[in-house]
Design a protein around this nucleic acid. Structure first.
Lengths: 160, 160
DNA sequence: TTTGTTGCAAATCATTTGCAGACGG
DNA sequence: CCGTCTGCAAATGATTTGCAACAAA
């Protein structure tokens, strides 16, 4: 058996699964026909608890039980991506980042080019551009949009 | 010596550089304080002749003289990126793509999720969102925006 | 002459994959 | 029990880097 927990803990865990585990997580997985497993519960927990898009490495480091393999995190995130449970976001650095799509309105981000701080841009005005794409004959249109800039604290530091 | 050309050709080339070579390319490189070298001229030529964002591999395969190393293409593209001569574009596949910034208006793209065809979206309406970012205190704001959809031919094929 | 560039080969590093054993339903 | 998921280790593949030779200015 996979020894995430010792024998006693395992029984407790089994009971947890059936009862006290965050109903949301249970439902989310069920709805997408994903099996309810310990790694998936943990990864969802981390995703739900972070406000910014996170890298796979960040997810892995925030998981309590270190027995969960990095490869599992990659595979899980890709499964989530297929089920459109997360979106992938490109901040033009070496890591892909992920964010839950559920429980949040559609939004975008601005990243500080200096310190890397991330803030949300809550409004999205892309309808005219989507219309242009529709006129070209495209269907099922999605978009990815990120902003980059220098935040106030970093601007001030630049002036010494 | 680097044998792009034999001795005679080399002299011809030197003269070309000083006279008949695309003035644009000469000026572009000079303005950015980049040395005028054969690989850079070739890479600029390829970039100027392609209408869609291209990968480093595509650039390399379109270069006439195959002595030019892939690593040189990577280094050159990164130098161009620093000088803001090209922009990098993420289509969420495994390759980064690049496009000349000069000689074109600001625009975005829509990529067919099935066949990969790329078309431009000529209009950009992001000013309200940029304003939101400015209100948060950000300066020197840029953005990356790509659209994804299914093009008309691919939609038709899906219906058999 | 000085400094920047290139070719070549090797290294890097995020991500993927094969497989056998373990788990979920 | 069947089919899916996971851990482990090894592979993959785009991109980067060290270095010595070479070219631009």
């Amino acid at each position: 058996m996979l020894t995430y927990l010792d024998e006693k803990q395992e029984k407790v865990f089994t009971i947890m699964i059936k009862s006290t585990i965050d109903k949301d997580i249970f439902v989310i997985l069920k709805e997408r026909r994903l099996r309810i497993t310990y790694p998936r519960i943990e990864i969802l927990r981390v995703l739900k608890s972070t406000r910014n898009p996170v890298t796979v490495l960040e997810i892995h480091s925030k998981i309590r039980n270190k027995k969960i393999d990095l490869a599992t995190v990659y595979r899980t995130i890709n499964a989530f991506l297929e089920k459109q449970l997360v979106t992938d976001i490109d901040f033009k650095d070496e890591f892909k980042r992920y964010e839950l799509t559920i429980d949040r309105d559609h939004h975008h981000h601005i990243v500080c080019k200096i310190c890397g701080k991330i803030e949300n841009i809550e409004n999205c005005f892309t309808d005219k551009m989507v219309k242009e794409a529709e006129e070209k004959g495209y269907q099922e249109i999605t978009h990815s949009l990120e902003f980059f800039g220098i935040c106030e604290p970093c601007s001030n530091k630049k002036l010494h």
